[in-house]
């Protein structure tokens, strides 16, 4: 088994240097456009205390959660269907190949006109963001299961249904998890963009407000929170992935 690179004291040195440099440069720059770390931390607690931060985060989180869950479920379902049925694969693959390369945010203007500015907009956007890669990874994962395993399972008396649940899906799960994990970070980037452009609530909206009011400290608070959320989401899926598949294959880092 590969050795997991440890997070040790060395990892914290660059972070420490970075934070220290931020504080010192911010302190001596004397411009509101570059506040020192300490001011940003204070602002963080201010926003936390008056509820703005949690409210915004809650709004973004709800959108991400709903859109991402639906997108992943639909993606796994369609991907699995394509994986087990040639007919479904041949009929859907061209369509998906055409739609997949469109950057998620490219859909935004169209969806704004179709759906309007409301809560459904970011949810649909996030759905699209999650759906295609997850479907694609599910399909790939299923396709990569060697025919010999299925053959073997059949000689052991297993029905097609049993083979799907107990051989194909578990063996495709590393690929499916990769899709889920990559998109877990991606949907945060997408929801922020949507909120910056179109939706007046959420972390993205708070960011844009910070810009309008020339409050760089608020912007920086938002960026830090975003970075943490992306990181946290990806870690959750990494943890789940290792929990589900770590015993039988090499762990993911």
């Amino acid at each position: 088994m590969k050795r997991r690179p440890k997070v040790n004291a060395l990892s914290f040195i660059p972070i420490g240097v970075f934070l220290l440099a931020w504080e010192i440069l911010g302190h001596y720059s004397q411009t509101p456009l570059f506040p020192p770390l300490s001011k940003v931390v204070v602002q963080f607690f201010n926003l936390l205390e008056n509820g703005t931060l949690l409210k915004s985060l809650g709004a973004s989180f709800t959108r991400v959660f709903i859109g991402y869950t639906l997108g992943c479920l639909a993606g796994i379902f369609i991907g699995a269907l394509m994986g087990v049925s040639r007919a479904v694969e041949y009929s859907l693959r061209p369509l998906i190949s055409i739609l997949f390369p469109i950057p998620t945010l490219g859909w935004l203007p169209l969806l704004m006109l179709w759906i309007g500015i409301n809560e459904a907009l970011p949810v649909v956007l996030i759905f699209i963001c999650a759906f295609f890669p997850v479907a694609y990874n599910t399909l790939t994962g299923i396709k990569e299961v060697k025919k010999e395993y299925i053959k073997t399972a059949r000689t052991l008396g297993a029905s097609s249904w049993y083979i799907f649940w107990h051989v194909i899906l578990p063996m495709a799960s590393p690929n499916i998890f990769t899709g889920l994990r990559l998109e877990a970070g991606m949907v945060w980037r997408t929801v922020i963009a949507a909120e910056m452009f179109a939706i007046p609530t959420g972390i993205g909206a708070l960011l844009i407000n910070g810009e309008t009011l020339i409050r760089v400290d608020i912007i920086m608070v938002c960026l830090v929170v975003l970075s943490l959320m992306c990181f946290f989401f990806e870690q959750v899926f990494l943890w789940l992935e290792n929990k589900a598949t770590g015993s039988w294959r090499e762990r993911c880092l």
Binding site: K151, T152, L156, G157, W248
Partner: peptide, 22 residues
């Protein structure tokens, strides 16, 4: 009669133990 109902054992060259099962 399909494979799964033929009541056979079949050992392939590379065995193909299911990697996700102990």
């Amino acid at each position: 009669v399909p494979t799964e109902k033929r009541d056979i054992g079949y050992l392939l060259q590379d065995i193909y133990l299911f990697p996700h099962l102990n």
